[in-house]
């Protein structure tokens, strides 16, 4: 059964995944909308760069992050001067999950925005809405399904993040160890029972997540389609 240490790992993982997801929703929607509406040069380069973490080995992404954040790295130097320690702390776990989940959210949300008839935004304007109101009353509700879907995917990805995390946060029990890392460690040291239990918990969480998303989008769908 679950020990106190197991429960702590589960709680830490959920907290990190939830926080990471919440933090990328706003920027993710903004970037997705910009990509959907932007029609200028460099669009495809931008899209490719943003999707890169999806296809790179997570350890490679982790390595890049590490080189940027290391004490003598581009950002690390500045963080170090400010007395902020990121590498091998929970902040690194959070950062790794955010970087890995961000492209998934952007991808779904961008497709959702692209599927909204762009004339509807203009129509809302002729009906007296400013650009912000038109976005919140027309474009956003119509892209809702894709955004929820993307958010759920991002959350699921954050739950399971391994490669990038292990590179920049290590696998420190009680400090940076998430479910995915704990399963790996348990199996490495021959604690197969613990690894199996934690894997079971992971399955349960993932199932609940997907099912909730399904329910959220289904409920909304029923009103619009037929």
């Amino acid at each position: 059964m679950l020990t106190a240490a197991d429960l702590a790992v589960v709680a830490f993982t959920l907290r990190i995944a939830a926080l990471g997801t919440v933090l990328i929703i706003g920027p993710g929607i903004a970037v997705a909308l910009a990509l959907a509406r932007y029609r200028g040069p460099g669009k495809s380069i931008l899209e490719t760069l943003l999707s890169l973490p999806l296809v790179l080995p997570p350890t490679a992404v982790g390595m890049l992050l590490l080189s940027v954040l290391a004490r003598r790295g581009l950002l690390g130097r500045w963080l170090d001067a400010a007395g902020i320690q990121v590498v091998f702390t929970w902040k690194a776990v959070l950062l790794a999950t955010m970087v890995m989940a961000f492209p998934l959210l952007v991808r779904s949300a961008r497709t959702a925005f692209e599927e909204v008839d762009p004339r509807l935004d203009g129509l809302a304007r002729t009906l007296g809405c400013g650009p912000t109101a038109a976005f919140f009353r027309v474009t956003l509700p119509l892209a809702w399904r894709g955004i929820v879907g993307g958010t759920v995917l991002a959350f699921a990805r954050a739950l399971g993040e391994f490669g990038a995390t292990v590179m920049i946060a290590g696998n420190i029990p009680g400090r940076t160890q998430t479910l995915a890392l704990a399963i790996f460690q348990a199996s490495q040291v021959g604690r197969d029972d613990r690894a199996t239990t934690l894997a079971g918990v992971t399955v349960l969480i993932a199932f609940m997540t997907l099912w909730t998303a399904e329910w959220l989008t289904r409920r909304r769908n029923r009103r619009v389609a037929t």
């Binding site: 008839d117 509807l120 203009g122 129509l123 509700p141 119509l142 809702w144």
Partner: peptide
Amino acid sequence: VGYVPQGAGLFPH
């Protein structure tokens, strides 16, 4: 200025 585009352009939601 009221505008009714081709295909009506109703808000489907």
